[in-house]
Design a protein around this nucleic acid. Structure first.
Lengths: 158, 158
DNA sequence: TATTGTTATACTCTATAACTATA
DNA sequence: TATAGTTATAGAGTATAACAATA
């Protein structure tokens, strides 16, 4: 080993490896998740858990969805999604009808109390998250949006 | 042409409100969290849950920490942290001694099997997250780092 | 009295495995 | 046989409330 790189002249290009980026994701994401969970839990009375919130939102955006589709969206097993849908149904937030065309499938739809709660929680959580971003510069907001867009492209579907 | 803005020439400045940014956080963060959880769960055999991983990492970085400090770091109640520490102690990953100077407090330290597991999970999770970033451009990696830095400054401590 | 921590209780989330009903 | 979903079981995460030990 004879060739020592000259560190005085060539500034080492920031490596910014995928590993470093991954470590940052692992560090920061759970903390933001905590803030979201707390917000949704205390939002005006009972609230929803984060998975319930996502589940209800999906059914709202996809009326007639099946339990399998919910499970795929949430990234959980069919059994987990089934239990979650059952809770939401028993709470009268969701209607779980049997599909006409395929009697094995459920046709899930949101019910008025579900939509009302969803709106309430969504607004509350958004407001809380927005409050956490109070005073952020436009550049910082852009940075967050750009970073999230990349993460989304990497972690959604694939 | 005095009062109608010319939309062909002037691109409307992107509003990029805090609310829009908050909505994106709410949309994307749980999905990334799912990927992390799955990774840590299947990482070589048993694995750790995300909270356990964070708990163990904190104790590793703060030898002698108390249960209260763990709870504050995790953002959970004292009861929750107590149960988690108890599980890690029973699994021989953590030593929970009584503080000499204040016998109410615990002095938590990581044990060799805990550190070994921590390293294994950390490397596995990092590798999985890094794999998800496979093919990302330097600009994309920068965007993720910048976005996370802003989120961190907003959601950690405050 | 105030602080640190544990225990009791009750949820939800989550997985795997075994099962039913429908196609 | 294959697919959609449920049920059974088990363990972790989480909170609140009540309690014990120490300062």
């Amino acid at each position: 080993m004879s060739s020592v790189p000259d560190r005085r002249r060539v500034a080492p290009p920031p490596p910014l490896s995928r590993e470093a980026c991954a470590a940052e994701v692992i560090d920061v994401v759970p903390k933001v998740m905590n803030a979201m969970r707390t917000s949704m839990r205390r939002s005006i009375g009972d609230g929803l858990s984060v998975p319930q919130f996502r589940c209800l939102g999906f059914i709202d955006r996809h009326p007639g969805a099946s339990v399998s589709e919910v499970a795929a969206f949430l990234g959980v097993t069919l059994a987990t999604a089934s239990a979650m849908v059952d809770r939401l149904a028993r709470a009268a937030y969701v209607d779980a009808a049997t599909s006409e065309v395929d009697r094995r499938r459920s046709a899930l739809t949101i019910r008025p109390p579900g939509r009302a709660l969803l709106d309430r929680i969504r607004d509350g959580a958004r407001a809380d998250m927005a409050a956490a971003l109070e005073g952020a510069s436009p550049a910082e907001l852009s940075a967050v949006m750009d970073g999230l867009a990349t993460l989304k492209s990497r972690f959604v579907h694939g």
